[in-house]
Design a protein around this nucleic acid. Structure first.
Lengths: 261, 261
DNA sequence: CGCCGAATTGACACGGTTCAATTGAGGTGG
DNA sequence: CCACCTCAATTGAACCGTGTCAATTCGGCG
């Protein structure tokens, strides 16, 4: 039962508040709205479908637990498209009423809350500029993560993919205060990891062993520990969050070098 | 010079209007706004950067030509994340002011227009419900396409990936009236295709040959022809657009069968 | 004619898959 | 307390889809 780090308030909506507060200046009123989400929250068991592809469902917020969007091919192949961690949005806040693009299933017991109060606050207008801003940033981060996933699947080796995605999880868990000393708990099985990274379980297994042997990380008993996050980042050229990236073709307006930091 | 089917107005903003009109009921005023986009449009040559990762740029609409979002790894590997076809949005309409997630470069000469008039119409409120709706659907489709891309890269063979993405292009070109008799023009080189599908040029080449031999499609001289779109769809279990998908795990609320419309 | 980018081809190496067991770690009932 | 079940993790061996390298050909164009 290894639990979270030293966080003052382990209330159920904590992750959401923490994350949004990082991303924008929340008014006390906004914080109140978010804090009260947990009052109307539901518990759902592992494997529940949070939403079904093609069906409309009002957006929710994931207060605790992990989930993922996935798609199944007719022959049984599964591809995990995106992971949902505590503090994430389930379903699109910005365009409700449209059918879900893919199904979402819970990877653990999860606690979810209807995002309706947030939606109403957003539509109410000027009062929630900070909240609205924070939500926009969340959507932006979601999209960036999806983009990263494409990079992993398209142009990285198995070894790099695992490093890359674990760094992503590390960052996302950190953003909601769920990382203690470079390690965090996760429900990831090797099969889930394989279905996300487009690899077979067998190969995921061997890759993890290699990563352990290289003393980069360890993952056992539902707990991931990154022994050398910096070296990992260098290996997959993942700049620390927020840093710009170097990659301009020799076209017209090449900005030249780029700084560290 | 194979051109569009029988469309009355081949004006430059035609693709945008056509596409949006399909997706929602546009008021005459909305249509006017869209039609006048071309008046403030710019031509840009092949290889121009429409936006640069990490930098803010106001959203635009692609009136003609192809472009793509891409990311380069430090060792030179390239991954194309998303393609932009006539009628597409460049940059996120819904959250302007945030830095671009990846760079976009033109694959052909392109014509782009500042999307600002559309943005203003959207913010103006009730008058443009149809337009707003259509834009939401475009964003939805974009996200669905990105999701499809993840599937391709994660769980499909080279053969399937090529079929799958060409079907996507076919559908998207059709939506803006640029398909004539199952064929359409494209600037796709085998290298671009490889960088999008996570494959080497050599292997793309061999895969295309196989597809030709199987009499499924042909792609030469910048023109793609799908000889048997239906058989192709069956091969990659891509349901015709709009159809729900069958893929529910044996969980609690299994909806059983699904209808074919 | 000669250049250049794109398409092709062949030979070979390797990353990753598949199949088939085996081991290990809870969880439950007798 | 142990037999038993199940799910996740491991292991070995053979196979094959793709990548890599290195030419070669093709097609437009100045």
């Amino acid at each position: 039962m290894t639990r979270t780090a030293g966080c003052a308030d382990p209330g159920p909506a904590n992750a959401v508040v923490l994350r949004l507060a990082h991303l924008g200046q929340l008014s006390p009123r906004d914080a109140g709205i978010l804090g009260s989400l947990s009052q109307a929250s539901r518990h759902l068991p592992t494997h529940s479908e949070l939403c079904v592809e093609g069906r409309v469902r009002p957006p929710m917020m994931l207060l605790s637990g992990w989930a993922c969007y996935q798609r199944l091919l007719s022959d049984g192949r599964r591809q995990i498209v995106r992971f949902l961690l505590p503090g994430d949005l389930v379903g699109s806040l910005d365009r409700p009423g449209l059918p879900a693009i893919s199904s979402a299933v819970a990877l653990t017991h999860v606690m979810v809350a209807d995002a309706d109060p947030v939606l109403r606050a957003l539509n109410a207008g000027e009062h929630s500029a900070g909240l609205s801003d924070a939500i926009a940033r969340i959507l932006q981060v979601d999209e960036a993560n999806l983009c990263d996933h494409v990079i992993r699947l398209g142009r990285q080796t198995a070894y790099e993919r695992v490093i890359h995605i674990l760094l992503e999880f590390h960052g996302r868990m950190q953003a909601v205060g769920l990382v203690a000393g470079n390690s965090f708990t996760t429900p990831l099985t090797q099969e889930v990891l394989g279905d996300a990274l487009g690899l077979s379980v067998v190969h995921i297994n061997r890759t993890l062993q290699q990563l352990r042997r290289d003393n980069l990380l360890d993952i056992r008993n539902g707990k991931v520990t990154l022994h050398q996050p910096d070296r990992m980042r260098a290996l997959v050229d993942r700049t620390p969050p927020g840093t710009p990236r170097s990659h301009v073709l020799p076209f017209d307006d090449d900005p030249g070098g780029f700084g560290g930091e």
